[in-house]
Design a protein around this nucleic acid. Structure first.
Lengths: 172, 172
DNA sequence: GTAGCGTAGTTGAAGGCGCAACTATTCCGC
DNA sequence: GCGGAATAGTTGCGCCTTCAACTACGCTAC
């Protein structure tokens, strides 16, 4: 997967010999990729089928629901949801069609837009939340020892510090 | 994220009170979701931009390259790549257009198809592999202590046992 | 041998997403 | 206060993925 079309050369390197993975690393890597993909797929699928809300949309609703007035600037929301501006804009348009979010020009900045969670949107979120938490319990926490949960957190936070230091806050 | 539209009730449950996450679980969960998404996005992006091969396509090429004759039944390949049949079928069509894979009817079963990696496909994979392994090193292994790598493996394998026991083999 | 069922794989339509181009507004220096 | 650069957000297009319908072949029983 990361070391199969491999070495054989040890002579003059083009750009330095790639740092191939050894067997142990390979195994750890595959365990990570597979489990991450299977878990995200599973959670998304269960949520979508039970509630009609994809995980991506769910996260938007959650982010808005956590704000004081249930409203948020588009770009802040995009950052919070690890989404591109474009993607968020498309998504908010769909959520508007469902009547769960509406847009509102930002008073302080005429360029800006606020996404506002409607009561219907909040209700949809309330209905979906128990389904989601149950999936997360079943497929994640119930499968791990407390020590593994702790390891997962450390590990996740280590990656986060590298990949996006700004996201470290907000881990309530 | 999983416990914000929350309790307040403790009386007669509709279907039993949801098992909300406590603060520690919440934090571990968020660290996991964010890091998993950021890492997969980053790896996919770097690979795609540097080589024109998405991570999904890369995995198909890798799977084929690991087979004795660089060929594999479509459904087996789909399982190996955690892909639906449909998705794989579409993807193989695109890879055929690039001349990296070709289809071949399966001799033993007239219903079946074999996906075969061409020499051009193998060459493309050889070119992409060093880029990919470097990304994985930089964004994953370089950020973790040996103990964390081990924890990641245990943790990933625990989830795998639950989510898809058939994938446990193949972690070379 | 053929009816009926199960399996393998493909296809087309619909929706999600990234990218690049675009509009609208604000900020800054003068 | 005005011109140009920077910022906020949207939009259209194309690719990817899903879902459901479909074709084609194999298997079993009668």
């Amino acid at each position: 997967m990361t070391a199969h079309v491999s070495p054989a050369s040890t002579g003059a390197p083009d750009h330095a010999e790639p740092r191939w993975l050894d067997a142990g690393e390979q195994r750890a890597w595959r365990a990570w990729v597979y489990s991450a993909q299977l878990l995200t797929d599973r959670l998304d699928r269960e949520l979508t089928h039970a509630t009609g809300i994809s995980h991506a949309y769910y996260e938007i609703l959650v982010a808005l629901s956590e704000e004081p007035e249930r409203r948020m600037r588009m770009s802040e929301l995009a950052d919070r949801c690890l989404s591109s501006r474009s993607r968020l804009s498309h998504a908010v348009s769909r959520l508007e069609e469902r009547g769960w979010v509406r847009r509102q020009v930002c008073p302080e900045d005429g360029r800006g837009q606020l996404a506002v969670l409607t009561d219907e949107g909040f209700a949809a979120l309330e209905a979906a939340a128990p389904v989601h938490v149950e999936s997360v319990r079943t497929h994640l926490f119930d499968q791990l020892s407390p020590a593994q949960v702790e390891a997962m957190r450390d590990f996740g936070e280590a990656l986060l510090r590298h990949l996006d230091p700004t996201q470290i806050r907000g881990l309530d």
